[in-house]
């Protein structure tokens, strides 16, 4: 039942939405939503499932974006999707390096490691001009998006390409968290000592979490730069973006692949909603004030969710559905 629901949703998203949607829907909502969702899934694997906090997601996104750009530029005849995969692998390799301290450090001491990644990567990408192909402005236009001869450069095309990539990787993530690897991560998260006693390879699990999470963030970065921003620049991957991705998984639901999508939808739609409300109720289109209100709202929501609903929007959704099911009694309740 659940499978068919998801399949139907995907079919609509892939076949119907590109025909009926407009440019605004694709460029301002759906494409950034997909890229952020993927980054959220990646961070959730690391933070939600394996219990290692990171505020460096944007750095790994930047690595992915720049790696894809450079592979595309320097390797002739490389298929676009291959450059996506190579970008993910590059991000994974760097992720392992910055994940190494996790073998010795726990909790928020790890913050320093991931912050180091955030600052160092951004600095290196701006400072060494080779990464940007010696472009004087440091802002590179993303390459043409074509897979197997089909052009995906239009708004709808970029959305479809993002959707395909995100759907595939999300499917893998869903399988992964229910595999032995996923169970190992949760064991490490819940009690590392107990995990070690029952024979979970702690070091390997943690490093694997960093690698896979960085892979996801890397590919998300490619989508963010190529499909959403359409430029590759290190300013597109600030610490603020890292925080937002952390917020996505807190609001959406820690340790839930679906949660990343809920959270990303929320983070993308909230500012648009606020500026609409500001425009229609107060007649002001002051984007500065809307931004500040958004900041306060996000902060309040983070605290509220941590206090009242630590499992995030996902758990609200499930509870709502269960309640609805009881009311209607013919809709099957979701398995938790």
């Amino acid at each position: 039942m659940r499978f068919w629901l998801v399949a139907a949703l995907l079919a609509v998203a892939l076949l119907v939405v590109p025909r009926v949607g407009n440019t605004y829907l694709f460029d301002a909502i759906l494409t950034p939503f997909l890229a952020l969702s993927l980054a959220g899934v990646g961070l959730n694997l690391l933070t939600g499932y394996a219990g290692q906090i990171s505020v460096g997601s944007a750095a790994f996104m930047a690595i992915g974006a720049f790696a894809a750009y450079n592979f595309n530029l320097r390797v002739p005849h490389l298929p676009l999707l291959a450059s996506f995969a190579l970008a993910g692998l590059t991000a994974a390799a760097v992720g392992i390096v910055f994940g190494l301290p996790s073998l010795r450090l726990k909790g928020f001491y790890l913050l320093v490691s991931t912050l180091a990644a955030q600052y160092f990567v951004q600095w290196a990408l701006t400072n060494f001009h080779w990464f940007a192909n010696d472009d004087p402005s440091g802002v590179i236009t993303a390459p043409q998006l074509a897979v197997a001869g089909i052009d995906f450069s239009s708004s709808a095309g970029r959305y479809v390409l993002s959707l395909a990539v995100v759907a595939t990787l999300t499917f893998v993530a869903l399988r992964l968290v229910h595999s032995q690897t996923g169970r190992n991560w949760m064991a490490v998260r819940d009690k590392d000592l107990a995990a070690a006693v029952i024979g979970v390879p702690i070091f390997r699990s943690k490093l694997l979490a960093f690698a896979i999470s960085s892979f996801y963030c890397g590919v998300a970065g490619v989508l963010w730069a190529f499909a959403y921003l359409r430029t590759v620049e290190s300013d597109g991957f600030t610490l603020d973006l890292s925080f937002r991705i952390l917020f996505i998984i807190i609001i959406g639901g820690l340790a839930s692949v679906r949660g990343a999508f809920f959270g990303a939808a929320f983070i993308v739609v909230l500012p648009l909603l606020l500026s609409r409300i500001g425009a229609s109720f107060f007649g002001t289109t002051d984007s500065g004030i809307a931004e500040l209100v958004e900041m306060i709202l996000i902060g309040v929501l983070i605290i509220a969710f941590l206090i009242a609903e630590p499992a995030g929007l996902v758990s609200l959704w499930d509870r709502g559905r269960r309640r609805l099911a009881r009311l209607l009694s013919f809709v099957p309740a979701p398995q938790s």
Binding site: L246, V293, E294, I296, I302
Partner: peptide, 27 residues
């Protein structure tokens, strides 16, 4: 309200708090 929660949770709460205070200060 967050007494007895893990240090990570508390950290994330203060991260949210920093957004609230920064936004409020400038507003």
């Amino acid at each position: 309200p967050l007494v007895n929660q893990s240090s990570i949770t508390l950290f994330m709460a203060t991260l949210g708090l920093s957004y609230v205070i920064e936004g409020a200060a400038q507003l």
